[in-house]
Amino acid sequence: MAKQYVSTAYLQQHDSKLYAIFAWSQRQAEIIPAKSWLTVMEIFVHEHFLEQAYQIFQEIKLAPTVNQVIDEINKYADLLSNAIVFVADKQITIYGKGFRSFIEKDMQFELGSLSRETYQVLPQLFAHLQLEDDLEKIQNIKDFCRLVEKLENLGLLSPATGSLDWGDLKKTVPICQAFGLTRGTPVDRYYLRKFIDDIHPQVVGNILEVGGTPKDKDFYQMNPGSSYRILNLESGPGVDIVGDVHDVSIIEPNSLDSVIIFNVLEHCYAPWIAIENIHTWLKEGGKCFAMVPNAIRVHATPVDYWRPLPDAFAWMFRNFSQQKLYVYGNPITVIASYHGIAVEELTPEELDAFHPDYPVATCIVAEK
């Protein structure tokens, strides 16, 4: 089936520039630099097939603006400094009070019908911003497809409703039940490795690993420091201290230079207490190196309580004098992590792309 597209964007002008903003998102806005972007987005509001969209583009790209469009758009000129323009399937809607209009269902002005007749609404709405007039630069369907691909990669075009190809992902059981281990390396391990590579030189002195095993120590390949001890709830080979990280009395205060706690805090019934205890155990200037998964299946070992998001994780370490967050993930790796798709099945670009709204793993270096 031929690929189909639909526009999906919130547009807002600011300081004589036009931006695509991302609703309720931490992602930075994208500048809309050229008229071609608006024209192509408007076409895909109504026409979803690529070849037909290109034919429309050819027909309208040099056409003069219809007087009806100019007259209608002039009615909203005073609103645009505070408005958001919503672009979606068969819709171009001015929210006169920004997102408040969306929530309150007030001061909404629909221009979809006029757009369907002319394909000139978006360029005319923002004609005063003097965007680059690059329509003539798109001379063939290859040029058109390159722009479509760019807009899709930015999230301004999406697969049209009903055309999404789920492929192997449309199933109600995961591709791998064991985090991806049956296929290769789990995605969260990839991000943990990146974090370890960054912090490796900082882990020094009297080191405590919470919840670890000798096998983990080998995977981390940490400098053993002056001493390297492992704290665990259960006794076993290589476990130096048997105890609960919630119990502050098991470690002497101000005695540690480094604490490592990876993939443990989500299993703590009160991770904020565990972190307070680590703060107590560290010397002044000592550091805690922590990692929690954000997007991973439930794994009760022995119980699984939390998925702290980056803001929550930073709050838990608020009593430390300094902290640096490391957040990893994007929509592809969120899906991969939940489905158990392995690192080896993704490209480095797919793994390393970052989207702040889709964390897979959050790590922190916090200094007492």
Rank of each mutant, 00 (worst) to 15 (best):
Q322F: 13
M316V: 09
V298P: 00
V292T: 11
V303D: 06
D311K: 09
K287S: 15
A295R: 02
M291Q: 08
P308K: 08
Q323S: 15
A312T: 15
Q322K: 15
N294F: 02
F313R: 10
A314K: 12
K287L: 13
A295K: 01
Y326V: 12
V292A: 09
F289I: 12
S321C: 08
S321A: 11
R318T: 07
Y305H: 11
W306S: 11
F289A: 10
W315S: 09
V327T: 15
V292Y: 06
V327H: 09
R297E: 02
D304A: 04
G286L: 01
N330R: 11
R307Q: 06
R307H: 09
M291N: 03
S321L: 05
F313L: 15
V292P: 00
V303K: 07
Q322E: 15
N319Q: 13
A312L: 14
H299N: 12
N294R: 07
F320Q: 02
H299E: 07
P310K: 06
C288R: 02
C288N: 08
R297Y: 01
M316N: 05
I296Q: 06
P302S: 03
V327S: 10
V292W: 06
K324S: 12
G286H: 01
M291D: 01
N294T: 09
M316K: 03
V298A: 01
A314E: 13
D311R: 07
Y328V: 08
A290F: 02
Q322Y: 14
P310Q: 08
W315R: 11
A295I: 00
Q323E: 11
T301L: 08
P302T: 05
K324C: 09
K324R: 15
A290H: 04
K324A: 11
N319C: 08
C288L: 14
